[in-house]
């Protein structure tokens, strides 16, 4: 690796100044589980990494029923699934946080990093979209919020502008009688990149689907929010037959490629299976709530 400088600011302001000054010659460092690999593979040519882990706001992990859940951008996966509120209120996020990498990776990797890395296969993004997540961003011109389904704009591309840093992820408290789930398919049982993934949420009303959200991983240049899959089943009974309606729409919406991890045909097939299975799990979870 070529020489690179390291800064470890203690405030968002300081981080924004550093990032703004260096522009595309710098990137924030959270868990490093993607960034360090990419630096060694020369995917980025940087002069500076800005360690985000010593900034208090990026380490925040708080939940209360009135304000919802805030996950600092640098909070590692193990803290997320180790938090009892997140476990009980946002199981779909826990699904993803406990299958990103293995134990060691989960000791470092963050959901903020997973989002900013903007890989189509990012496991945590579909369930975060399912939970109506919002990215809280700070930059030279102040702060702004972006819905997570709008955050990734292409492979390794996001809405972040020069000098901006993702501070935290925010999720409203799910409605009553709601449930969510994320599942992915990999040929092994751990340590793999999703061939396809499905993150869904449902709100039930007397045995029917009041609303649903479906997002797919690894089948488009960005995590693919398929709004029509959820809309099509609103008002329908919470059954496998209904899940099949949404999963067929998800399959048709997928725009995958053929590569070493799977073919177009196979990935589309997986979209149907995974969406259906995830919806059924989400429905079960909703009934328990």
């Amino acid at each position: 690796m070529k020489w690179i400088d390291y800064e470890s600011p203690h405030s968002v302001r300081e981080a924004v100044d550093l990032l703004n000054e260096a522009g595309d010659r710098a990137r924030p460092l959270a868990g490093g589980t993607d960034l360090l690999v990419q630096l060694r593979a020369k995917a980025y040519d940087l002069d500076l990494v800005v360690d985000a882990k010593n900034i208090p706001e990026l380490n925040e992990l708080t939940y209360d029923p009135d304000n919802g859940l805030t996950i600092g951008a640098a909070v590692a996966c193990y803290r997320i699934y180790g938090n009892s509120s997140v476990r009980s209120v946002y199981p779909g996020i826990v699904d993803a946080a406990s299958l990103i990498g293995g134990t060691q990776i989960q000791g470092r990797a963050s959901l903020g990093g997973n989002l900013c890395n903007a890989a189509p296969s990012a496991d945590s993004v579909p369930p975060m979209i399912a939970y109506n997540g919002v990215a809280r961003i700070s930059g030279p011109n102040g702060s702004r919020e972006v819905a997570l389904e709008d955050f990734c704009t292409g492979v390794r591309q996001t809405v972040l502008e020069r000098g901006e840093i993702l501070v935290s992820l925010h999720f409203p408290t799910p409605e009553a009688n709601s449930g969510a789930n994320y599942i992915r398919f990999i040929p092994r049982n751990e340590m793999d990149i999703a061939v396809a993934g499905a993150g869904v949420s449902v709100v039930l009303d007397n045995g029917s689907i009041a609303s649903a959200r479906v997002t797919l991983a690894s089948v488009a240049p960005t995590p693919l929010f398929v709004a029509e899959a959820g809309e099509a089943i609103a008002g329908k009974p919470a059954t496998e037959e209904t899940a099949r309606i949404a999963s067929a729409i998800a399959r048709d919406a997928a725009r995958p490629i053929t590569d070493m991890r799977g073919t177009i045909e196979y990935r589309k097939r997986l979209c149907e299976v995974l969406t259906r299975r995830a919806l059924m799990t989400a429905i079960e979870r909703a009934k328990e709530n």
């Binding site: 092994r188 049982n189 751990e190 590569d259 070493m260």
Partner: peptide
């Protein structure tokens, strides 16, 4: 039998030359 292979691209290069994508069995498999 199940997962390992040199996945070759059109240019004759190996696409999966990492332990992530070469997919040797883990303990969980």
């Amino acid at each position: 039998a199940l997962n390992e292979e040199y996945y070759m691209n059109e240019a004759g290069g190996m696409d999966n030359s990492t332990l992530l994508d070469y997919r040797m069995p883990t303990s969980l498999d």
